[in-house]
Design a protein around this nucleic acid. Sequence first.
DNA 1: GCTGTTGTGTAGCATTTGCTACAGATAGAA
DNA 2: TTCTATCTGTAGCAAATGCTACACAACAGC
Lengths: 197, 197
Amino acid sequence: MRKRFTRPTQVIHKGQAVSGAYLVTDGQLRVFTYTPQGSEATLYFIRPGETCVLALNCLFNDLRYPVWIESDADTAVDIIPGPLYRRLFECESAVQDLTVKALSTLVFRLMDELEQIHTCNLDQRLANFLLSNASAQGVLQMTQQELAGHLGTTREVVARLMQGFVAQGLVSTRRGAVTVVDTVGLARVVNPSDCIF
Amino acid sequence: MRKRFTRPTQVIHKGQAVSGAYLVTDGQLRVFTYTPQGSEATLYFIRPGETCVLALNCLFNDLRYPVWIESDADTAVDIIPGPLYRRLFECESAVQDLTVKALSTLVFRLMDELEQIHTCNLDQRLANFLLSNASAQGVLQMTQQELAGHLGTTREVVARLMQGFVAQGLVSTRRGAVTVVDTVGLARVVNPSDCIF
DNA sequence: GCTGTTGTGTAGCATTTGCTACAGATAGAA
DNA sequence: TTCTATCTGTAGCAAATGCTACACAACAGC
């Protein structure tokens, strides 16, 4: 079964039961939590070709969904019903591989994220986020509010850091987007003691 | 093959190639990274019956080990060589299940950790750590330095928070150990806006 | 007992981050 | 155009955390 979201949509909310395996074919899903103050913190993205590992988790362990998921605009998702997926997993080695690979990838992403939080301060994490998520032309279509959500901080802080980057000539900002100007310079912000493994 | 560590030992260091699947049968392993300042930050523990998922990851994806691992005193580990494990995974559904379960569990732990970092401040995380890791009698045999490592902070901060807890009559401290006195009170520190899911 | 090592308590300051508040800028709708 | 909603820039203060420095306490070995 395929679902298509034309605009940002809440796909799953915390506590909900999981209906099946989600396979993103287009666009992206965002997995996030809320802070007590109500601001969002992105845990990770699910991109085309990837599946929602948490949904798999919940399927295999009969758990309720532990976080929120929201779709980008223009996102398509294939949904494989839970029981079917479990049957497939038992006999299809391709499905097994896919499952394990997906889980592995996520584990690495989460550990990377954790390590970053422990070892980098916000400007490094922001720089890293910009570098990782900007298009080939260096453009990132995202408001500062959204950026703040991805980093688990607030808009003002992002604005402050952004101004710092602008002052150093590393990026340029405009309403709803950031452009990376000096990739190498930004990388130096992230890097001084190598916080990406 | 079984290995036994009678004293805290560096089992794997970052960048090392992985030789096989590690199955903890006794004691525990600690997976951690270093901050630029040289202090440690624990990512998670591997307890008896569990396997080192990162090692699995590395096996399946031919990666080098991304973090450090250290054993507790008195820890026993079964090591299944990589190629053998991969063969087993292909034909034994029990091994498949074990693998997926192990990965799933870790994903949840990491997400929990991430969520905690985003939503709780240090005193809540410390309180939570004490509650989760104290023995049935409420005793936790650990120096403040080690506690700091587990939370990714420094000894002084732990000492400060600890004093707060002592002042509130929640715990008592002595050299190399902490005793939880008022479990309910500590839980209230963690809880006010429910940061454990 | 003495001595060295390790762990703990405490203080003070620097830095980072969060929060409040408001002004100006930009884009879209009417 | 004007109005409105949203986004951004900025300032200033509060709180949390990190870092340095030192005194004292507990334990181990001699």
